[in-house]
């Protein structure tokens, strides 16, 4: 097998105006134009999108799941960041 595998791209689709782009999967393409065209054919055959982002997978930087605790645990004990932490007098109906 000759070594001509096309690069891998991650595909993000905005399903409609007002929503953010969401990761839907990946595909191979020789360049960015082909990546957009392939993404159109593979991921939006049923009007799933109004906008496509593609980024070569090698450019994605991801956090390490093994360090999940040290990254995200500090947020766990800061419950005062949530409005439900605060007791309001019954007399106050809306705040």
């Amino acid at each position: 097998m000759n070594n001509t595998e096309w690069p891998l791209w991650e595909v993000f689709i905005r399903s409609r105006q007002g929503l953010n782009h969401k990761h839907v999967g990946s595909l191979h393409a020789a360049d960015q134009d082909m990546a957009i065209e392939n993404a159109r054919d593979v991921y939006t055959r049923r009007q799933e999108g109004v906008s496509i982002w593609v980024v070569e997978s090698k450019h994605i930087v991801a956090s390490d799941p093994a360090q999940g605790d040290s990254l995200f645990e500090p947020a766990a004990n800061k419950i005062y960041r949530h409005p439900t932490f605060y007791q309001l007098p019954d007399a106050i109906k809306h705040m």
Binding site: N2, T4, W6, A30, D31, M34
Partner: peptide
């Protein structure tokens, strides 16, 4: 095979 190679060569040239 030639299509895959040509597409890659074109991408590199660009």
């Amino acid at each position: 095979a030639w299509v895959r190679e040509a597409a890659l060569a074109y991408a590199e040239k660009k």
